[in-house]
Design a protein around this nucleic acid. Structure first.
Lengths: 206, 206
DNA sequence: CGTTTAAAGCAAATAATTTGCGTTAGAGGA
DNA sequence: TCCTCTAACGCAAATTATTTGCTTTAAACG
């Protein structure tokens, strides 16, 4: 909720006791999910484990779904562990593959589910994509060639199909789904980059 | 005399009283959402309005989110109101545009939100895409040309970017987002179909 | 029709959430 | 450093939601 960096806004108390409470509550949620499963996690139980009163939790997070959603988001690694080499045709597929591994794992799927269930629509938007844009932007920035597409296009072509399947289907995903999508995307955009290379082979998606 | 395990051949009682209760409850949910908004809809209130006891609702649907999700799904039109003319380059974009209008409306977004919030992950999959596949299949079946892609590819290229934006972003969508995606998709696949018709004009609207 | 039993009703018990008010401890200024 | 202000917490009572054991009703089938 609060940011830990930058100038303090008046009327906010991000540090000290508030921070300790937040950390204790988050830790309690993680522990209880591990012990009892998602269904066994209730506000009173989290409060007892964290050593705070239920009303504290109800006032900061409004309900269990929001709290679990909050925890799920924080526990997902949001950084981009790929070191771009500068060639999009390598960097983007590599990142896509890693991203799929991350999201299509048991904890990844659980995280997506929890985040969605805690999204109440009053907030501006479901915050799942926020973790993704910086990674893509970093790869694009590192490209030695000019980039003729934007981050949203990558999301449409690579991230969207992946998330859609994770959310809306049960079947295990083809392991190279995101990678293949990324390869096809890069190829398509290098074709469009000026030369009319229509005779080149296209990557057919599955 | 009791039977051993499966007493009734059907084992379900979809008609009669059960049906009346279901209809009354669904109607109560719709009415209460209209009167109080989603936040004001609680199980006891729905029960009172529908003339049933709360325990009935808790036993059939396990909680409010599941119930609202159920109602939201049923109230979404699932049929394909597009009459395919047989040409994919017309049918698919036309359907895509209609689908976007449907989903990116206020009630459509609310429906998506409610369905996701009611999805508990115990069910096999979130049932939002089930309404879409038959429509796409119908269009493909009506095509006079051979179809060299499957329904899932259309979902990846057209439906996934749309749903992803609806779920994960707040900004209003470009009105031709899905249509453009459909046009690009059909074009890509007709290029792959054998002829190298790269010089053809494309019907991209601006 | 009679039998069977899934689904509904009822009510008591339990669990959760909300709320009013007093207390504590950080942030910012003197 | 100390003082002040107040956001955030604790506590407990009130309210509301959910579960549960048992009874009753009526749909499906012979």
């Amino acid at each position: 909720m609060q940011n830990t960096r930058g100038p303090l806004k008046s009327g906010q108390r991000p540090g000290g006791r508030s921070l300790r409470v937040q950390e204790a509550v988050h830790a309690a949620v993680v522990a209880l999910i591990d012990e009892l499963g998602r269904e066994g996690v209730t506000v009173p139980r989290v409060a007892a484990r964290a050593g705070v009163t239920p009303s504290t939790i109800y006032r900061r997070w409004s309900d269990i779904a929001t709290l679990v959603s909050d925890v799920a988001r924080r526990n997902l690694r949001t950084d981009c562990p790929v070191k771009p080499c500068g060639r999009l045709s390598e960097d983007l597929p590599a990142w896509a593959e890693m991203y799929q591994d991350e999201m299509d794992s048991t904890p990844g799927r659980a995280m997506v589910r929890d985040v969605l269930r805690g999204w109440d629509g009053r907030q501006k938007a479901c915050p799942l994509l926020d973790a993704v844009r910086p990674s893509i932007a970093l790869i694009c920035d590192a490209s030695v060639e000019p980039v003729n597409f934007d981050v949203e296009a990558v999301i449409d072509a690579v991230v969207a199909p992946l998330l859609t399947r994770i959310i809306f289907t049960d079947a295990p995903l083809p392991s190279t789904l995101a990678r293949d999508a990324a390869v096809a995307f890069v190829e398509r955009h290098s074709l469009n980059a000026g030369r009319s290379g229509c005779s080149q082979r296209h990557g057919v998606r599955t």
